[in-house]
């Protein structure tokens, strides 16, 4: 049995995540990148990922400080621990990048994603869709006699689960924002 070498803050999810630090395995990390909101800054960050062969699972960006022209890019990426370190170092040296935070290792954080789902159907399926939406705390933000548009907020896993349930009930289209994340506490 491998020794229990749990690095402090190595996982935000569970204290029972017993990862062997010597095994090179893919990890999923959520990075928050604070940048000057100048022309081309998103292309710089995306180009870095594609140019060096890094993965992007999800990416969101918007200006968060209008007076200071500062944007926050939240990017979810996967890679071996060495690759994740390299991604952070590469991001940090991009000139308009001010800060790079690895929310996955810096302590507990919350992640949320918003999705809109269009579900078309009539009769029993339509009723079932509405009932499941209620269970998932999704709101109907548009409805016709044959369709709903549901708005749901949650972790990407929760949205996946909701979408899976809606599929047999007439899911037609889905739009997702990608993950937004913040560290917990002050």
């Amino acid at each position: 049995m491998s020794p229990l070498k749990i690095k402090k803050g190595s996982s935000s999810h569970s204290a029972y995540d017993l990862r062997d630090p010597n095994v090179e395995r893919l990890e999923r990390h959520t990075l928050a990148v604070l940048v000057d909101n100048e022309a081309g800054v998103l292309a710089r960050v995306i180009g870095l990922f594609s140019g060096r062969g890094y993965n992007i699972e999800s990416l969101t960006v918007a200006e968060v400080d209008h007076a200071g022209h500062r944007s926050r890019i939240t990017v979810v990426t996967t890679g071996t621990p060495a690759v994740i370190e390299q991604i952070k170092a590469q991001l940090a040296r991009v000139v308009p990048v001010h800060e790079v935070h690895d929310l996955t290792v810096e302590g507990p954080s919350v992640e949320r994603e918003l999705a809109l789902l269009k579900v078309c159907g009539t009769g029993e399926k339509r009723v079932e869709a509405l009932r499941l939406a209620d269970i998932f705390r999704a709101n109907a933000v548009d409805s016709t006699l044959e369709s709903f548009v549901f708005e749901i907020t949650g972790t990407p896993e929760k949205i996946d689960a909701f979408a899976d349930l809606m599929r047999p009930l007439g899911l037609q289209e889905i739009a997702r924002t990608g993950v937004a994340a913040l560290a917990r506490g002050c």
Binding site: A82, Q86, A89
Partner: peptide, 8 residues
């Protein structure tokens, strides 16, 4: 001087 060179 370039942190991205370390452990690359």
């Amino acid at each position: 001087i370039d942190p991205s060179s370390i452990n690359k």
